[in-house]
Write a protein that binds this DNA or RNA. Structure first.
Length: 326
DNA sequence: AACTCTGGATGGACCGCCAC
DNA sequence: GTGGCGGTCCATCCAGAGTT
């Protein structure tokens, strides 16, 4: 397929929704925030009472007004697409379009104009995987197995689409199988084969290791499902995506949590999206008590959210651990 | 500088599911 | 049974970084 022949595919729409249109009148939306927004949008349909309030509660740091404006801007853009105008993912500015007549013409004609060779297309360089993302990938791989990239993407590597996860997995397994068959290998993120085990020697102990890319921009926010790795004792870090929190933090609580430094702040508390994950069913009640104590000990003394327990008795299937915040 | 390697993105083939 | 659709796998492209 030529690059100029761009169908309105689901992946296109997804990338459109995932991108952060730099609308000047709005505050910046990160990919992560867009993902939260997208998930909340899917969860609360048009008939949901107080829809935008509920969506706002799922997107930390955004006001209801910002949510409404963001929604309206997306609706405008989607209508723009539906009308036959395809906005390229980079959201080039009007000025840029006006300076590139060919570019503009190809857009206005639908998609296919001139159809230069695909090699001439601007194939955007992707964002390198971070070590954290790779660790989450390994956790997801352990949990769902090879092939269920969708689940891994949805429940572990939230910052990557299933296609991206699959692509990453492809390289990972190629790397895995090629180990030893070639004389030399550069160290890469794919040399991390298990959670925790390799990261230290590879990243910090090996002075030859260099990041794949220059230090990536700091992630907009930690994964919604996974608390910081150093929050838990090593023996428990292997798979601990907190799946449910029974009481989503209130706005005031969230402000407090936002002020709490990692690892006791936002990451562990914003996992209240209700998606069940049986990943915690290996842990005993004692483990949960330990986590509660660890968690409570990390909270500042003046936080109103000073009592937390991990409850593995709810719901009845015992596969869901719920962190009670009061 | 030229070559090699890495890794994200992408297109196409293939497969399974589902509605008709 | 068949066609459409969605998803996955695999091969490939290619920019960028590392190596010689």
């Amino acid at each position: 397929m030529e690059c100029s022949d761009l169908p309105l595919s689901p992946s296109l729409i997804e990338s459109f929704l995932m991108s952060s249109p730099p609308l000047p009148q709005l505050t910046e939306w990160t990919r992560y925030e867009n993902k939260l927004f997208e998930n909340a949008l899917a969860e609360f349909d048009l008939d949901t009472p107080d829809r935008f309030e509920k969506i706002a509660s799922r997107v930390p740091g955004k006001t209801i007004d910002q949510i409404v404006k963001h929604y309206e801007s997306l609706v405008e853009d989607i209508e723009f697409i539906d009308s036959g105008h395809y906005p390229i993912p980079d959201y080039v500015t009007i000025d840029e379009l006006q300076q590139e007549p060919d570019h503009q013409a190809s857009k206005q004609s639908g998609f296919a104009k001139g159809s230069t060779s695909g090699r001439n297309c601007d194939r955007r360089r992707g964002v390198p995987w971070t070590e954290e993302e790779h660790q989450l990938f390994l956790l997801g791989l352990r949990k769902y197995g090879k092939g269920d990239w969708r689940s891994i993407s949805r429940n572990y590597v939230l910052t990557r689409t299933p296609t991206q996860v699959a692509s990453h997995a492809q390289k990972f397994f190629i790397r895995l199988n090629s180990k030893g068959t070639k004389g030399r290998h550069r160290l890469s993120i794919h040399d991390i084969r298990s959670v925790n085990s390799a990261s230290k020697p590879l990243m910090s102990g090996n002075t030859n290791f260099k990041p794949i890319a220059p230090a990536p921009a700091p992630a907009p926010s930690p994964s919604i499902h996974t608390p910081p790795m150093n929050f838990f004792p090593a023996a428990m870090r292997s798979n601990f995506p907190i799946s449910n929190i029974s009481n989503p933090p209130t706005a005031s609580e969230r402000r407090v949590l936002d002020s709490v430094p990692a690892p006791f702040g936002q990451p562990a508390f914003y996992n209240y999206n209700g998606e069940g994950s049986p990943a915690l069913n290996n842990y005993s009640g004692a483990d949960m008590n330990y986590l509660s104590n660890e968690f409570n000990a990390g909270l500042p003394s003046n936080t109103p959210m000073n009592k937390a327990t991990f409850d593995h008795s709810y719901p009845p299937d015992s596969h869901h651990y719920v962190m009670h915040s009061r």
